[in-house]
Amino acid sequence: MTAVLSLRQAGRSYDDGHVVRALRPTDLTIERGDYITVTGPSGSGKSTLLNLIGLLDRPDVGTCHILGRDASSFSEAERGALRGEMFGFVFQAFHLVPGRSAVENVELGMLYGRHPARRRRALAREAIIRVRLAHRADSDPRTMSGGERQRVALARAVAGDPVVLFCDEPTGNLDGANTENVLELLRQLHGEGMTLVVVTHDSKVAAQGTRRLRVDDGVVREGA
């Protein structure tokens, strides 16, 4: 069975003035059903890794493969479909659209996908309930707490039922009780068969993963 995602000697460096090797050439294979947690110090390259395997960025060396196919061979239409339907993202900074209610933000996550508007609305409602935000469904995210926004972002990522869920610090702004809720939700999703890649600073979150990655200075090691 082909791996969902794999990196073959894929690396990424930035050059503004001096070269930053954000991610050194890395080999990584992600199988269906994996629950991968990624830890590492700030600036070590965790988000860079997530962006590469999530097709938000392109490696400048090596290749990234999706279901066995070289990602650089995908058209923009296919990349869009992969990002929108196969992947779900929870960004470190949430990136909710101000002026639209929580449920509208969740719907937005499925805008470019296969579902018609009515279906998107129904799925968004379900997801909002799932993250226990039914009472804030029609609120503007600008009026919400950091933890609530994070849960809206999580609802947006999972509403369309992606194959792989990428989370960059999903519990970063949450207190103990809310962290527990989110962890419970991630466990459930994993139980349903979803593949998870979760970046975290929280050792409790990291402990949940079936595979643990550690990134140090752009170098990825497994089983930390």
């Binding site: 269906r32 999706i66 279901l67 196919r69 239409a77 296919e78 869009g80 479909a81 992969l82 990002r83 929108g84 339907e85 196969m86 101000p98 002026g99 639209r100 805008l111 470019y112 996908g113 296969r114 018609p116 508007a117 039922d161 992606p162 194959v163 349903e192 068969g193 979803m194 593949t195």
Partner: peptide, 29 residues
């Protein structure tokens, strides 16, 4: 459900969605 192995083919932007997104964006500012 999470087992769909085929790569989704194309992302789309339905005309109705396009229109309502454009209107919402304009109204937001």
């Amino acid at each position: 459900m999470h087992g769909d192995s085929a790569v989704p083919t194309r992302s789309r932007f339905r005309p109705r969605d396009l229109f309502s997104e454009a209107v919402l964006s304009l109204l937001a500012h």
